[in-house]
């Protein structure tokens, strides 16, 4: 099946069209955040303070890249395990985040929240950091430079490949895929 091309940031219309198992190619602007950045963002939300980035319609990519060599936009940049962000994901969705890219299982609470907020969970191929780095054309640290690999980066991506795991209707590729090939 041909992959669907989508433009970031995302609209509700696009969200509803995405189904579990779809392959997508993302182009546009996305932001990175891992454990430490999420913790800081949610602390700001708790205090009622404004965030360093506007999350409306955004895709958050769970990644901590290797340092870029001279001439590179970014170093190796594959997804990290998403489950560690489960504790923060509901809050991020409430602030307008529409999709997150990572790898691995999500909690039931996150899956429910995705349905409620018309969000999707995407997986990129874990451990394909060299290949994925080629799809990132520009990278700029926009918050928390002191966190090093965990800083928030603004990425310009072109045809960045990902697969829809959890869609807005509550489907889950991890459950359905394994059932199909189990013996």
């Amino acid at each position: 099946m041909e992959p669907k091309r989508i433009q970031a940031p995302l609209t509700d219309e696009v969200m509803i069209s995405l189904k579990s198992g779809d392959n997508v190619l993302i182009s546009g602007v996305i932001y990175t955040a891992r454990d430490a950045a999420h913790k800081k963002l949610v602390e700001l939300m708790d205090k009622g303070e404004s965030l360093p980035i506007d999350l409306n319609g955004q895709i958050i990519y769970y990644v901590g890249p290797t340092p870029a060599k001279p001439g590179q936009a970014i170093g190796s940049a594959g997804p990290t395990t998403s489950g560690r962000m489960d504790a923060y994901t509901l809050r991020m969705l409430e602030k307008g985040m529409k999709a997150c890219i990572g790898k691995g299982l999500r909690s039931q609470a996150v899956k429910d929240a995705l349905q409620k907020h018309k969000g999707v969970y995407l997986a990129a191929v874990g451990g394909a950091g060299a290949l994925l780095s080629k799809k990132i054309k520009k990278s700029e640290v926009v918050a928390y430079p002191e966190l090093g690999p965990e800083a928030i980066r603004r990425l310009e991506v072109e045809d960045f490949p990902a697969t829809v795991i959890n869609d807005t209707c509550g489907n889950d590729l991890y459950e359905e895929g394994a059932k199909k090939y189990a013996r």
Binding site: K69, G78, G126, G129
Partner: peptide
């Protein structure tokens, strides 16, 4: 699985890009 094959192809390509362009295989 066709999806599984697609993933394996990406992983093989990833190994080749890493070797040819001296990029770490994985960011971790």
């Amino acid at each position: 699985s066709p999806t599984g094959k697609e993933v394996l192809k990406q992983l093989i390509e990833n190994v080749e890009i890493a070797r040819n362009e001296q990029i770490p295989i994985c960011q971790d």
